[in-house]
Write a protein that binds this DNA or RNA. Structure first.
Lengths: 352, 352
DNA sequence: CCCCTGTCTGTGAACGCTAACAATGGCGTT
DNA sequence: AACGCCATTGTTAGCGTTCACAGACAGGGG
């Protein structure tokens, strides 16, 4: 008469066998009920469900994963998850994954390095993810990824199109063209650019779109300044640009700084502060546009013209791409989803 | 001579038995090597490690979890993960968890509701998390949580101290006192307040700190306006406040709007825009302070006085709290970690 | 020389589940 | 009345690991 399974103490979580015993069926029938197998008599099903309810039974995911060889878990490697963009993607992605019946585990990188990336991926595969989404938009990262030859599908986000890895991206080039075109259309002789870090693919694409637009319009291409996405770096670039405005003085020249396309909204904010401190009015003397459309952009002083990216759609698309590869292997390695951005015109580029 | 295990085709991932065979030992010895058991001869260990290397063997986490009853996975439920605060916590938390050898799976809630919360928790426990961190700072959420009686430890972040659930929080009350005191100290007769949504614990605590400070100083307590954390709601509140400034006209009264404490930086941005549009100068006519110290705050026009919260520390503390509860059950249910915020004074409250 | 101790290794049995197959019984068909 | 089919249920055998225990072998003290 020692402690038996009957004892009140909730020794451990109930198992399928416990449910089976209580419902007076075999554990296999319980399994069938749980997996919606058609051939179960209604009365039996009810009895099982009642037993499940009464015992508060939950299927053990490890045991299930062991036998089915499916963990139903996806991994995500992300880089600057406190930024609005990556955070939004992560959010959209998680939601999409949940809808598809997957769990997502994220690993964040403080800074990109080949080792940090491979460590992150190791960590994820130790936990048995079925596939991963990599949101690390460094050119080097995607190259490192291609080397790795992982035993599960990988999808990149903003990973560029140069390598045979399926991926989702926003058409950064198009976004940059929209902004630059908008500024040229407003009568500016040329458009200056504050770029992101040169090893970021997005920075590169935005710069390319800007440059191409200028060249196609046959106007002078001023040397781009380079920032690191932070408001501070934008501020520094802004100070330098402000100096040039002053230097050009009254004499108007084709390369005067009258319009600046900044590669993201945070840096644009810094640029605007520098201009303000230099006594330059925006958009009166200089028009400014950003990229991303962070929620704050509309309330900047002045409200910022920018490019809106549908981050949630990016997240969803990446999950779809990944899940399709899970369901049928042998899909093409170069499948791409490109999402179009939208120009949002606000008063930072439209003098009243 | 049909396809045997010897065939070159990588049928499936190598198992411990494969490694054992290759190294000429038993699977148990492989297990011992992998778990750093001391009693393994060096030569044996080397042979095993070599075999592991050659086969590219990785331990199957499901099988391991099944027998050890440890999934080494923690769950997180977060609410507005695109906001800077929650995103930073998630980040710090994930990093801390990884250091402790845990994986973290996050579920995000679009909007809080009791059902959404319990669905999220269901989803996580279906995957066998060992414990969860809940970052849903609604009073209702914490109450709902206390009802749930989950079979694993739960830790709240910004969950308030009214219920017996261990938690981590920033001392919001103190932060609000610091700001309000700072403004009173600068000579303002009183301080107006734009609060967050009333069902958010943080909003409540910030309002309380503000109100108590005013009452202790024996000054008039103006009716607080209420926003929803977004810049737009701050903008609306700002318009209303601007109306009051105008109404008070030249005649100075004790309840004049000369200083506003806004419950977060995003709303403060909106308030500043409204003031700008109303022709009010900040800080010349009205001083404004926010809360959170988002990266952009320093570059607002003007740079915003605010309260900095160490989100990363919050994330880390929550993981420590959770892990300690995993390692030894029966710890007190009312353990709290409180993190002190810091006042960051910038020019939005310091007329030059 | 034996026994005891300690180091190292192997064997068998779980862990909780699903897949494959076997068994049962009812029903319609020949 | 015998047969086959189908719906329903049970039985058995893994999945890949760790745990508990047993065995083998060496060294040291009586």
């Amino acid at each position: 008469m020692s402690q038996t399974a009957q004892s009140t103490g909730p020794r451990r979580a109930p198992t399928m066998a416990d449910v089976a015993q209580r419902a007076g069926v075999s554990h296999q029938t319980v399994s069938r009920v749980l997996s919606d197998h058609p051939n179960v008599r209604d009365t039996t099903r009810d009895a099982v469900l009642r037993a499940i309810e009464e015992l508060g039974y939950r299927r053990n995911s490890s045991a299930r994963a062991l036998v089915t060889r499916r963990t139903l878990t996806l991994g995500v490697v992300a880089c600057n998850p406190t930024l609005f963009g990556p955070a939004s993607m992560l959010f959209g992605l998680e939601e999409a994954a949940r809808d598809e019946g997957f769990m997502v585990s994220a690993v964040t990188l403080r800074r990109y390095s080949a080792k940090a990336l491979s460590d992150a991926i190791d960590h994820l595969s130790d936990w048995g993810v079925e596939g991963i989404v990599v949101i690390v938009p460094h050119s080097a990262a995607v190259a490192a990824l291609a080397e790795l030859r992982l035993p599960f599908p990988v999808v990149t986000v903003e990973g560029g199109h140069s390598l045979p890895i399926p991926g989702v991206s926003v058409d950064q080039d198009l976004g940059a063209r929209l902004v630059t075109g908008h500024l040229l259309g407003a009568g500016h002789r040329t458009v200056w650019h504050v770029a992101g870090p040169s090893d970021w693919l997005e920075a590169e694409a935005r710069e390319r779109g800007w440059r191409d637009t200028l060249e196609e319009a046959g106007v002078e291409v001023p040397p781009p300044l380079v920032g690191d996405w932070t408001p501070l770096s934008g501020y520094r670039a802004g100070q330098e640009l402000a100096g040039r405005v002053a230097a050009s003085g009254a004499r108007r020249r084709s390369a005067d700084v009258t319009a600046v396309f900044v590669a993201n909204d945070q840096m644009a904010l810094g640029v605007m502060r520098a201009f303000r401190e230099a006594g330059l009015s925006v958009p009166g003397q200089v028009a400014i546009a950003g990229f991303d459309d962070i929620p704050e952009a509309e309330f900047f002083a002045p409200p910022l013209t920018t490019v809106r990216q549908d981050f949630a759609a990016v997240g969803q698309a990446s999950i779809r791409l990944l899940v399709s590869r899970l369901e049928s292997s042998g899909l093409p390695d170069d499948e791409r989803v490109v999402i179009e951005p939208r120009l949002i015109v606000r008063s930072s580029t439209t003098p009243t």
